[in-house]
Write a protein that binds this DNA or RNA. Structure first.
Length: 474
RNA sequence: GGUCCCAUCGUCUAAUGGUUAGGACACCACCCUUUCACGGUGGUAAUAUGGGUUCGAAUCCCGUUGGGAUCACCA
């Protein structure tokens, strides 16, 4: 039997990191076995539906390269793959479950059910409708009375099941709630739809957040009542924002698209979140999606929650940026160069930036001095280690200007040799030439690249112009 | 509150009864160096707690503490 997993998000807004990680694990479990990964949209709650949310799901999955084998857009043998389009199926099975004794009609209003509950929540809802005979209930249904279908739980003792991550789970049947399976609007709840769909779609491994651990026995009861085999369960711990709170889309944190907008690469994000709750068992930590497909195993999934650490993601993103082919990095950086003056040598700029940034979002702060020289104090020329100050600058800048003016080959190597030669001729340290030159060209204490690299980025004309201005300022 | 789950450096984690408790990020120091970064070397830093079991416990068992989840006509 081929392994089949599904990613079953509800289209209620942005795709957050925890969701994406669950999708990743689902994808990897399927693909590690050469199985199928499918996409199912769980839109049974019309109130929470957000326009455009499904597109975000499609786009996110596509940009990270997690292609699905079956789904709403591409079809498959087990469709439809949108739950709202499967409404008649759930109704059919719900009524069947009533016949089978696994559920019953309930005519209580929502409020009646709520009032039954103790404020301490330790009294279970005792549904009076459970006492109705099937005959009588069916008559009331036929008469058009509004109803829901609730699960019937008569079993006693302990329910047991095996989870691939948490091991054996035992929960007393008395703890289980006789929840609503089919709502009065005819839509199923998650509790029912997921069971029916996972069975009908031949899902072999159900991967989901560990908040479902305690309701899984209810689902198993439904599988049993229908005489179906239940799938393997892989419950995964949550991704946390801090020790107390799950990562949420509120508070500006970590949706996939936010991170991409901040200049994180999809490959780095995938790599990082794969390691949030899973490890390969050795010290390696840089993995492409293809690598992960080969080495992923559920045995190495963790049981405890993991805090999302943007600092480590940022480091990892830097690793990915540095590993990029120069042309590819240049292409990604281009949008950030939109305002650059025409004299700028953009490929030289990319070359100096690539080893120095960790996210693409770092670019603007690095290149701000290029478009316009910042206001700066001549104090900037002072550097103890380089043994320079404004006086040294004033002394050396004219000669620097002269040497550079006579340079025809405008490359980093050539300029560096020329200025090093000048330092030798003047019998000063390299830094006493290069440091003032860099300040004169940038007006900043730290810059991406040294004096000669910046000169190459600025081009000869602009370089000489800035040196003249600097001399005048001194 | 009932039930379920979880607990190793600040963070992600390794070590499935025997290790000086390992790695990575971050942090600090040094080296490299035309500033910064990259790269290199080194350092600070953890088994929540109390009992068992055992020759030996981070590892197995029980309690405590702390955290999380769940108890919706949300998923």
């Amino acid at each position: 039997m081929t392994t089949r997993t599904r990613f079953a998000p509800s289209p209620t807004g942005y795709m957050h990191i925890g969701n994406l990680r669950t999708a990743l694990y689902e994808y990897l479990i399927a693909k590690a076995q050469g199985g199928d990964f499918l996409l199912r949209i769980e839109d049974t709650d019309q109130k929470r539906y957000v326009e455009g949310a499904t597109d975000i799901i499609y786009n996110t999955l596509k940009t990270v390269g997690m292609n699905w084998d079956e789904g709403p857009d591409i079809g498959g043998n087990y469709g439809p793959y949108v739950q709202s389009e499967r409404k008649p199926i759930y109704a059919e099975y719900a009524h069947k479950l009533v016949e089978l004794g696994g559920a019953h009609y309930c005519f209580c209003s929502k409020n009646e059910a709520d009032e039954e509950k103790n404020e301490e929540m330790n009294i279970k809802f005792k549904d009076p409708c459970k006492m109705l005979s099937l005959d009588e209930a069916q008559k009331r249904v036929a008469a058009g009375e509004p109803y829901v279908i609730r699960q019937t739980i008569n079993k006693k003792g302990k329910s047991k099941y095996h989870d691939e991550v948490y091991g054996d789970i035992e929960i007393d049947y008395d703890e289980l709630d006789e929840g609503v399976l089919l709502k009065s609007d005819g839509f199923p709840t998650y509790n029912f739809a997921n069971v029916v769909d996972d069975h009908l779609m031949n899902i072999t491994h159900v991967v989901r957040g560990n908040e479902y651990i305690s309701s899984t026995p209810k689902y198993n009861l439904i599988y049993e009542d229908f005489g179906w085999e239940h799938p393997h369960y892989v419950h995964v711990p949550p991704v946390m924002k801090d020790a107390q709170h799950k990562l949420s889309k509120r508070n500006g944190d970590a949706s996939f698209q936010d991170l991409v907008a901040k200049g994180y690469l999809p490959e780095a994000i995938i790599n990082y979140i794969a390691l949030l709750g899973w490890n390969p068992g050795n010290d390696e930590e840089i993995f492409s999606l293809e690598d992960l497909k080969k080495i992923f195993t559920v045995e190495r999934l963790n049981r405890s929650p993991a805090i999302f650490d943007i600092t480590k993601l940022t480091w990892m993103n830097g690793v990915y940026i540095r590993a990029l082919p120069a042309e590819k990095f240049h292409e990604l950086a281009m949008p950030y160069y939109a305002e650059m003056p025409s004299f700028v040598n953009l490929s030289a700029l990319s070359a100096t930036l690539q080893p120095r940034i960790e996210t693409l979002g770092d670019i603007p702060a690095q290149i701000d001095f290029i478009k316009t020289m910042p206001e700066y104090s001549i104090e900037l020329y002072s550097n103890k280690k380089m043994k320079t100050d404004a006086a040294v600058a004033k002394q050396n800048l004219p000669a620097i200007c002269e040497v550079l003016a006579s340079q025809d080959v405008w490359t980093n190597e050539a300029l560096f040799e020329a200025l090093k030669g000048l330092a030798e001729k003047l019998v000063v340290k390299n830094g006493q030439v290069l440091y003032p030159a860099r300040i004169a060209l940038s007006g900043k204490e730290t810059t991406p690249g040294g004096a000669t690299e910046i000169a190459v980025v600025l081009g000869k004309d602009e370089t000489l112009r800035r040196l003249d201005a600097a001399i005048a300022k001194l």
